[in-house]
Amino acid sequence: MSSTRDIDALINMMARLPGLGPRSARRAVLHMIRKRALLLSPLADLMQTVAATARECRICGNIGTSEVCDICLSAKRANGQICVVEDVADLWAMERGGAFRGRYHVLGGTLSALDQVGPETLRIPQLVTRVTEEETAEVILALGTTLDGQTTAHYIADQLLGKVILTSLAQGVPIGGELDYLDDGTIGAALAARKPL
């Protein structure tokens, strides 16, 4: 029986995280073990807490610790704008930029015939319902400029045609780019220069 079995298992688990390979995971685990009281124990406690309390906002799909997220609860954010994003990482990227002050709608992915992801798999029906119930004036489609992102944007535009003003992000978002990888300034410029579909 190996004396490092649990440590090896932790390294293998960490290596599954985005941006970490086996070498990076090994370095991170060694660092945490060396700083056990400062890093490892508090991290373990926080991970246990988050595992028990994290949930999706029932309105927009954001991740938080309550049934409805702070953005959806804020009366200041009820300005008639809904920004549609592919996933929570994109919502967080938009929030880091601080340029958008409305509400969000997380789709949970994009349409993809190859991966058998249809409209019923995503949160598109909930978006259509929200637009009516919240008396939305504008829907901003902040989806990636990938083929699947653009297909999804066109599908949503068809569903909402005539019900609301539809806009999309403009300059600053490169073809094939994803919001989570853009800097805050680029996101702010793209949001400010959005254009009608």
Rank of each mutant, 00 (worst) to 15 (best):
P119F: 10
M47G: 13
V131G: 03
G109I: 04
W92C: 09
L147P: 00
R123V: 07
G97K: 06
L17N: 00
R103M: 09
Q171T: 12
F100Q: 01
R36L: 07
D90L: 03
L40V: 02
I63V: 14
T53K: 14
M13G: 02
C83W: 06
I7N: 02
G149S: 04
L114Q: 13
A25D: 08
P42H: 04
D90F: 01
L73G: 06
R16G: 08
L38W: 00
A44P: 09
R101G: 12
S74Q: 06
M32D: 00
M47I: 15
T167R: 11
V68Q: 05
I82F: 13
L182V: 04
L114P: 02
G176C: 06
I11L: 07
T132G: 15
G172E: 01
L46G: 07
T132K: 14
G188T: 15
V117I: 15
A44T: 14
T151D: 03
M13I: 04
S168F: 02
P22R: 15
L122H: 06
R23V: 02
D87E: 15
A9C: 06
F100A: 01
L122E: 01
D115E: 10
I165C: 07
R5F: 10
R77Y: 11
T65I: 13
C72S: 08
M47S: 10
S66K: 12
L127C: 05
T146C: 04
S24C: 08
R5P: 02
E120V: 05
V29L: 09
L73P: 00
V128K: 08
E134V: 00
A93I: 03
C57K: 01
V29G: 05
M94R: 02
C83K: 04
A153W: 11
E178M: 05
S41H: 12
R55M: 14
R36H: 14
V117N: 12
I82S: 04
A170V: 09
A93D: 05
